[in-house]
C-alpha cells in the first residue's frame, strides 16, 4: 500500500457475497494484476449475506477500468461501481494518539474542537483523538497535531456512498459552518464535509 503516489485516486465500491475467502479473492486479484490499493474498508451491507467493500485505488483511467472489470469477473462479486467522478459522501475514521502534557493539552483540545473531532482518552502524557471525515480532513488534522508528537495513527480507510439523486442537496453543508478555522488550518484544509 502506498498513499503518497502521484497517480490519481479512484473510489470503487463493490457489493460482494459474505462468504469465507471473498476478501482474499478480491485482494489477491489486485495483487496479481499489480493494482495498488490505497485503502480498503469492508463491512456488512443492508442485505443479509452481502458485504460492501470500498476501495481507494491509484491509477490512470485505463488501470481503474481494468480493476473494475476484473472485480466483476470474480464470481462472488455482485456489483462494482466506480464512484470517483460521482457526487459522493466519503468518510473515514481515525484514532490518533498525540503526546500531551499540561502545557499542550489545551491547544490540542482547541484544534480537536475546530475539526469537530473528539478526545476519547486522556493520559498524563498523551491523548487519543477520534476524527471522522474525508481523507483530506483526517490528514489535515494529523498534520496539525504533528508538532505535538503523533505517537500512533489508526485509520479505517474510506467508505463512500453516492449522494441522493433527486436534489443533490448536501445536508452537511446546510448545517451551520464550523467555527472559523485558525489561519494555519485554513491553509491546509479545505473542508467539503462536516463530520
Amino acid at each position: 500500500m502506498t498513499t503518497d503516489s502521484a497517480l490519481p485516486k479512484h473510489t470503487i465500491t463493490a457489493l460482494v457475497e459474505d462468504r469465507p475467502g471473498v476478501l482474499n479473492r478480491v485482494v489477491s486479484m489486485f495483487r496479481r494484476r499489480g493494482f495498488n490499493i490505497a485503502s480498503l474498508a469492508v463491512g456488512q451491507s443492508e442485505v443479509a449475506g452481502l458485504s460492501r467493500m470500498t476501495f481507494v485505488v491509484e491509477g490512470d483511467d485505463t488501470t481503474v477500468e481494468q480493476v473494475t472489470k476484473h472485480m466483476h469477473k470474480l464470481i462472488d462479486v455482485i456489483k462494482v461501481s466506480d464512484i470517483s467522478n460521482a457526487n459522493t459522501v466519503e468518510r473515514e475514521l481515525a484514532l490518533i494518539r498525540v503526546s500531551a502534557n499540561a502545557q499542550t493539552r489545551n491547544e490540542i483540545m482547541q484544534i480537536v474542537g475546530i475539526f469537530r473531532a473528539n478526545v476519547v482518552d486522556v493520559a498524563p502524557d498523551s491523548v487519543v483523538v477520534e476524527v471522522t471525515g474525508d481523507q483530506d480532513k483526517v490528514e489535515s488534522l494529523q498534520n496539525l497535531l504533528k508538532p505535538f508528537g503523533v505517537v500512533e495513527v489508526m485509520r479505517t480507510g474510506t467508505i463512500a456512498m453516492n449522494r441522493g439523486m433527486a436534489t443533490g442537496a448536501r445536508t452537511d453543508e446546510a448545517r451551520p459552518r464550523r467555527p472559523s478555522a485558525t489561519p494555519s488550518s485554513r491553509a491546509t484544509w479545505t473542508d467539503r464535509s462536516g463530520g
Binding site: 469465507p20 475467502g21 482474499n24 479473492r25 489477491s28 486479484m29 496479481r32 464470481i75
Partner: peptide, 14 residues
C-alpha cells in the same frame, strides 16, 4: 489448495 489455486482458477470451492 483453494488458496493456492485462487489466482489460477475461474472459481473454487471448499
Amino acid at each position: 489448495i483453494t488458496g493456492i489455486t485462487l489466482p489460477i482458477t475461474k472459481h473454487n470451492y471448499l
